[in-house]
């Protein structure tokens, strides 16, 4: 730590006692601040780093249970742990077999795409109606009227499978 380039007035270039104490205090203080401060940041942001929704294949029931041509409601419950609190959330879908073919199945979420109310299938109107703001969707989930910005969410392709005659959807928690 010889500060020769400072051209100290004294002959030799020792750091002064005062400056040494200052430097040590700053260095130790910064170290202690970092040891407490950095973990503290991790501590604060930790939930955001962990909050990934759970994903799972949910069995909705055997094909025989679902009448061809008529949407059938199925509900299931997913539990979620947030910190020390465990909550159970109920979710609902409509399963529609379009024909006798075991793969000809369509699954729609019952959550209205407007403000997340639950829609109901009305057989006489052949439409899903939302009780909140009069939204209407047709049997395939397309918007017939009302405020919804997009069709009902659909479980299809990779998110839908029929295994051993049982309909499954791939459910990812939001």
């Amino acid at each position: 730590m010889a500060g020769s380039h400072h051209g100290s007035a004294v002959g030799y270039h020792h750091i002064s006692r005062r400056d040494f104490i200052k430097l040590t205090t700053v260095a130790l203080g910064s170290l202690m601040g970092a040891v407490i401060g950095l973990p503290a940041i991790g501590y604060l942001v930790d939930p955001a780093l962990k909050a990934g929704g759970k994903e799972a294949w949910i069995p909705l029931g055997p094909l025989e249970k679902f009448e061809v041509g008529k949407p059938t409601p199925v509900t299931f419950i997913r539990s979620k742990v947030n910190g020390w609190e465990k909550t159970a959330n109920s979710y609902g879908v409509f399963v529609l077999r379009k024909s006798d073919a075991p793969t000809d199945v369509m699954v729609l979420s019952n959550r209205c795409t407007h403000l997340s109310c639950r829609v109901n299938w009305k057989e006489e109107q052949q439409a899903y109606l939302c009780p909140c703001h009069d939204a209407a969707f047709d049997i395939n989930g397309a918007v017939l009227g009302g405020p919804p910005p997009r069709p009902l969410d659909k479980y299809a392709g990779e998110n839908l499978k029929v295994e051993d005659g049982v309909v499954h959807i791939f459910f990812a928690e939001g």
């Binding site: 973990p39 503290a40 991790g42 501590y43 930790d46 939930p47 780093l49 910190g83 020390w84």
Partner: peptide, 12 residues
Amino acid sequence: YIMNGVAFGWLI
């Protein structure tokens, strides 16, 4: 939860 669930909770 602080002790087992949160990063550095045990330290704080």
